[in-house]
């Protein structure tokens, strides 16, 4: 009885969120996978769709558009995650050196995070206008004024590296946040440790290389997870910058056209399932690693 009294109130307290998350997150996730394994390729007709196993998951790889959007997603992820990590780390490193007016700088670099990807996208669509030469506007115009005409390029309309350009606004937006994470990480390294390392004859570079960086590993991993899952499901930024054009197609925009333009729920669900799975690949190792650390 007393044992029940101990856990029951707690359970009651969390049960609404357990139920809600159970239904609206995991329940619908399960439903999505179920739809993805049927042949319901017509949204309006009231046929439930037959179970076809993994057929949709296999057949989508024969579509040119899918291959392209996966490639785009990979380019975007590499540039965005790499760019934001490096830039965020660099900003934190400079900040950590005790710059005057640090609070102000911190706020300035963090501000972009308060803007939605949609607003960022609308502004950067103009900045990254692909017109060059006399008709250039935005950044290309700026390059022209600075006499750096050779830097003008097509931005997100470049057939090969367009998605790298698409990652630029995302890096701009998120690197401040990564800076804040790293700054907290830097501050978490006790001064005594650094001093001890210096006494042992480390130069400043070695202090960072051997002492501080290894201690930043958990922060780096969290940053990687956060950026990675944002990147794999990116949708709003792409739509705001270029709309649903093939040239900047990513799985999430492909899913949108499959569901709402082509009225093909099974295909849309298949793409959604792939997006979830790709995020899972990022997150599960993190959870395992976290659990192991907790046990220790």
């Amino acid at each position: 009885m007393t044992r029940v009294r101990r856990w029951l109130p707690g359970l009651l307290l969390v049960s609404p969120s357990i139920v809600l998350i159970g239904v609206f997150v995991y329940g619908l996730l399960g439903w999505n996978f179920k739809v993805a394994m049927t042949d319901k390729h017509d949204e309006i007709a009231e046929i439930p769709g037959k179970f076809v196993g993994l057929e949709n998951f296999a057949s989508i790889w024969s579509e040119d558009r899918w291959g392209l959007s996966v490639r785009h997603s990979i380019v975007f992820t590499v540039v965005f995650v790499g760019g934001a990590l490096v830039l965020g780390w660099l900003l934190a490193f400079l900040m950590e050196k005790g710059i005057r007016g640090e609070g102000g700088f911190r706020a300035i670099y963090l501000f972009p995070m308060a803007i939605s990807f949609i607003a960022t996208g609308v502004v950067w669509r103009w900045l990254m206008n692909s017109a060059t030469g006399e008709r250039a506007v935005g950044l290309n115009r700026l390059f022209h004024y600075l006499g750096l005409d050779f830097l003008q390029w097509q931005w997100f309309r470049d057939p090969d590296w367009g998605m790298a350009a698409m990652a630029v606004p995302a890096v701009w937006q998120m690197s401040g946040y990564i800076m804040a994470l790293f700054l907290a990480g830097f501050r978490g390294v006790p001064e005594e440790l650094r001093e001890a390392a210096r006494v042992d004859g480390c130069n400043e570079w070695q202090v960072y290389r051997r002492v501080i960086l290894p201690m930043l590993r958990p922060v780096t991993l969290s940053a990687l997870i956060i950026l990675g899952h944002i990147s794999l499901k990116v949708f709003d930024l792409v739509v705001a910058v270029s709309g649903k054009q093939i040239i900047t197609d990513v799985p999430a925009t492909f899913m949108w056209t499959a569901v709402f333009d082509a009225h093909d729920p099974a295909k849309g669900a298949t793409i959604a399932a792939y997006i979830v799975l790709s995020v899972v690949i990022f997150i599960v190792p993190y959870l395992i690693w976290n659990a192991r650390r907790g046990n220790r």
């Binding site: 558009r65 054009q245 056209t257 333009d261």
Partner: peptide, 22 residues
């Protein structure tokens, strides 16, 4: 809608590949 969407995909891909046969 489904047909139109497929035509749109084909044209979008063509803008990059410039491959008439495809």
């Amino acid at each position: 809608d489904a047909w139109r969407s497929a035509i749109n995909d084909a044209v979008g891909l063509f803008q990059q590949s410039q491959d008439v046969a495809k």
